[in-house]
């Protein structure tokens, strides 16, 4: 029998102790930029993407979650994916009746990929079920392995493949339809 006294509550300050142990500048240098890019696949504007990333960092250093050494990257990534998705959901409601956002600004140095197609693909990605989109971004943008993706998204490795497969199929259909 569990005695109530055994259910001792632990206040955050114990758990928060590691908070100060995070090396913020190093974390920032290593992850911030790529995370903003990651978030940008989900949300329309850079400001929101940055907010999502900042929230993820805050969550990380809050000390509320126990993170294994070296686990900061995966943690931040999943926090960003979750945060971006929440933003996306809010947006969906807000702009249910609004037209699609205008195409993305083409980078001058980028002359290989047709900017219109790129915009279509990113827009298509945002319409995919969240897990499929996440798998595709993690795989083709961050080049994570199947196992790393499975860990980041907390899904079975086998599902990574099927999500990627389904997502790509849908994107292909969309691309074919639009071309």
């Amino acid at each position: 029998m569990m005695h109530l006294a055994a259910l001792a509550m632990s206040s955050t300050h114990e758990a928060a102790a590691p908070a100060s142990s995070f090396d913020l500048p190093a974390l920032y240098d290593e992850h911030y930029r790529s995370l903003v890019k990651l978030a940008s696949f989900y949300v329309d504007d850079r400001e929101t993407a940055e907010d999502v990333v900042q929230d993820a960092f805050l969550k990380l250093v809050s000390g509320r979650y126990s993170i294994n050494p070296g686990g900061e990257g995966p943690y931040l990534r999943s926090a960003v994916l979750n945060g971006a998705r929440t933003q996306l959901r809010k947006r969906k409601v807000r702009r249910a009746k609004q037209p699609e956002p205008p195409g993305l600004v083409a980078a001058a140095e980028d002359d290989v990929v047709d900017a219109a197609e790129r915009a279509r693909i990113v827009a298509g990605l945002r319409k995919l079920p969240s897990r499929q989109a996440a798998v595709i971004v993690l795989r083709y943008y961050l080049d994570l392995s199947e196992r790393e993706i499975a860990e980041t998204l907390d899904i079975a490795p086998g599902s990574v493949k099927s999500h990627a497969h389904r997502g790509l199929r849908k994107l292909r259909t969309q691309l074919e339809a639009s071309s």
Binding site: S40, F41, L104, E109, D110, V113, I121, V122, L125, Y140
Partner: peptide, 9 residues
């Protein structure tokens, strides 16, 4: 597309 898009952000 993703990599190209990322360069814009």
């Amino acid at each position: 597309a993703l990599n190209a898009y990322a360069t814009t952000v």
